[in-house]
Amino acid sequence: MKFSILKTALAVFITAFISTSAFAESTMEKIVKTGKLTIAVQTQGPPVSFVNKAGKRTGFAVELAQMMADDMGVELVVQDYDWKGLIPALISGKADVIAADMTPTAKRHMQIVFTEPVFFSETIAFAKADKGFSSWKDLNKDGISVGATQASSWSDIARKMISNAKLKEYSGGTAQTVQAVVAGRIDAGISDRATIAAFTSSNKDLVVLDGQITKEPLGFAVRPDSLHLLHALNNYKRLIELDGRLGQKIQYWWNSTDWQADHN
């Protein structure tokens, strides 16, 4: 009697084990089976992903993913995370793709794998107009303080390129960096041109300083074992690049502030 219980338990255990490991399905197979493509986006990061004035989640990355999901004929599920939560969400399988303006750094590549660059960011510095800075190079001095989002590539860039200034990292994201600049807590903030465009157009006191500090490729990311999905994303990117749809979206969301009229 005791023996048979043990045997059943063993059988159950083995079945459970096999079903999770040996027959583990690929991410793409899961998407095909469930009919759902799940993306992780940043909670508040206009214009890449944000909630617009109508309370609807939208943005450049969301629309691109929506376009792909529509073409695949699957439903798009959008889950939003804090910036720091994006990579853990992907690794743990809460999402299939990170759709954000993330730079493929070497450290990040040790955890996840990025698609080909989808768009490019220009890292710039911004400050209050009455501070009298003209170029970002003016910031590289003792006694100047600059702010950037914690765990972002901007703070790495600030550390490297504006090494003489004191760097303050804000865990709340660009929004808090902007607040700190406005309140006079820091002399300037580091971010990218498209993100800051939203703030400078609504606040005349803020100006973008001359010169681009760096230019960085930005891509989407998947788990290292989602090879099928990675190739699909790369090829889809080339497809919409050539048929012009990617260019349209980039022009609307990234290279201009056209989107503000519709969404802010």
Binding site: K84, I87, P88, K107, Q111, G147, A151, S152, S155, Y170
Partner: peptide, 23 residues
């Protein structure tokens, strides 16, 4: 304090995460 960019114990954890990306 970490939220207003003061480095302390929580800030140490956040810095490690920000540099290594392992939560």
């Amino acid at each position: 304090f970490s939220i207003i960019a003061v480095f302390e114990l929580m800030g140490a954890g956040l810095r490690m995460y920000s540099e290594t990306v392992i939560a």
